[in-house]
Amino acid sequence: MALTRKTRRMYFIGLGLLGLFGGAALMLSAFQDNLVFFRSPSEIAANRPSPTQRLRIGGLVEVGSIAKTGENVTFSVTDNEHVLKVSYKGILPDLFKEGQGVVAEGTMGADGVFAAREVLAKHDENYMPREVADALKKSGHWQEGGAPAKE
């Protein structure tokens, strides 16, 4: 039995979409590295970028690491495995604080300190009233900052 035109069109579109999705999946996995928005301190420790390379790093602001002198600020970014020192001069976003997710763009200095040109705050997907957050902290069920630096 010959295929009707409708069935033929259906197969044609189905196969076309299958090819398209397959191709897209292959391309995305091939360019995986380029699609990463920021690198974690562990990745920086494993593979130190050159001082001329502009890149973004991300993680949590380590508790107790923020030091401000005038407009200059230094802090440490951690992914709970490695810690990276960051220096920055300028205005920080409202959400920037200890334990908060952060993404910084800049260059890796020869001294091992990341010189940030821009600092962005990253918030997690938890939304709750302040009282609930305080109660969670009090009862010890609090997980600081979620996990902004994945893998």
Partner: peptide
Amino acid sequence: WWNTLHQPS
């Protein structure tokens, strides 16, 4: 799939 500035779902 990738780390983003945008929050997860």
